[in-house]
């Protein structure tokens, strides 16, 4: 592989045979590599996702690299950071790109720290200004965008890519090339004593989400949100105050510091539309807002809106959704 490539870094695999967000970040990486006049590479840490070779071809990946090691079987942070830093040391990439997840949020900045290179999270796009890579990132939960100029050899950039619409081409599949990295000295310093117990479908993957906010008034009323979600064949979500007040589990929080969702339909009920909430749902194809305040910010993002009382509307919505 040529030196100086833009490298998209992933690990893990979702139901559709790819890591979450891989296509979106490959799409961004392809553009950045073209601007820089360099190759796009894709570095897979651990098992190769089944759809990786075909997908690599469709995004113009010149080299599909794979580091396999017993320590990357179910990748933990210390092994990931060590492997990424080793590959970066050997291959002198022009940039390392990540899809932002909770895991990459902890790994990417450590890689930057180890390399002594720039790091930017929450990226929404990357461009070139002269020789410099320029990253536009979300700030204040989405109220503003900050444009960062990143200097140095190998900036590390993570993207919130859920608003990106990837455009695959039709290149031929790329065979994976094995890289070996010495991880013998790496011990995970954090031991998982009790793993998170994944229960049922996740908001991140849901096609329909009905979320309730503080406008519901009391925790008892949240069951109406659950009923409407069930009637529409979707999942219930919530804004942060409901989590902070213990009405719902934190895995149901949608937003900047909760789940980043991209459903077909997002129904926000009694939610004001603060940027930090919208960061987790504004990529929905159709957003419906129900709020008794006609001036609520949520209506700016909505396709359909109803001004009214959530508690009067919810039983009617449950009835109407159930009726065929």
């Amino acid at each position: 592989m040529s030196q100086n490539a833009v490298i998209v870094c992933t690990w893990g695999e979702d139901q559709d045979g790819l890591p979450v967000g891989a296509e979106e970040v490959l799409h961004i990486g392809r553009g950045l590599a073209a601007d820089l006049g360099t190759d796009l590479a894709w570095l897979v840490l651990g098992a190769l996702p089944s759809a990786a070779p075909e997908t690599a071809g469709r995004y113009g990946v010149a080299n599909l690299l794979q580091v396999e090691d017993a320590k990357l079987e179910s990748p933990q942070p210390d092994a990931l950071v060590a492997a990424l830093a080793a590959v970066a040391g050997e291959r002198s990439p022009r940039a390392l790109l990540f899809h932002q997840t909770q895991a990459s949020r902890a790994v990417a900045p450590r890689v930057a720290g180890r390399l002594g290179d720039a790091v930017v999270m929450n990226g929404v796009s990357a461009d070139l200004s002269g020789e410099c890579i320029v990253v536009t990132a979300s700030a204040y939960g989405g109220d503003t965008r900050v444009v960062y100029e990143v200097s140095g050899r190998c900036p590390v950039i993570a993207f919130i890519a859920n608003a990106v619409v990837p455009e695959p081409g039709d290149g031929a599949a790329v065979a994976a090339e094995a890289l070996s990295v010495d991880l013998t000295g790496v011990e995970e310093r954090v031991k998982i004593v009790e793993p998170a117990r994944f229960e049922g479908p996740r908001l991140d993957d849901a096609e329909i989400i009905v979320s309730g906010g503080r406008g519901l008034g009391s925790s008892d009323n949240y069951k109406l949100i659950e009923q409407l979600a069930a009637a529409l064949g979707g999942l219930p979500g919530a804004s942060r105050p409901l989590v902070d007040d213990g009405w719902v589990d934190s895995s149901q929080q949608v937003g900047l510091t909760g789940r980043i969702t991209r459903p077909n339909l997002y129904v926000a009920i009694g939610i004001s539309g603060a940027s930090q909430h919208m960061a987790g749902c504004s990529a929905a194809k159709t957003l419906v807002a129900i709020n008794r305040d006609a001036e609520a910010a949520i209506f700016q993002y909505a396709k359909y809106g109803i001004v009214g009382d959530a508690l009067e509307l919810l039983p009617e919505l449950i009835r109407a959704a159930g009726a065929r």
């Binding site: 790091v119 930017v120 320029v134 700030a139 900050v146 444009v147 960062y148 100029e149």
Partner: peptide
């Protein structure tokens, strides 16, 4: 390594 060149308020549809 990183410098802010600009900040702007994104438009909402």
């Amino acid at each position: 390594r990183v410098s802010v060149t600009r900040q702007f308020v994104p438009e909402v549809q």
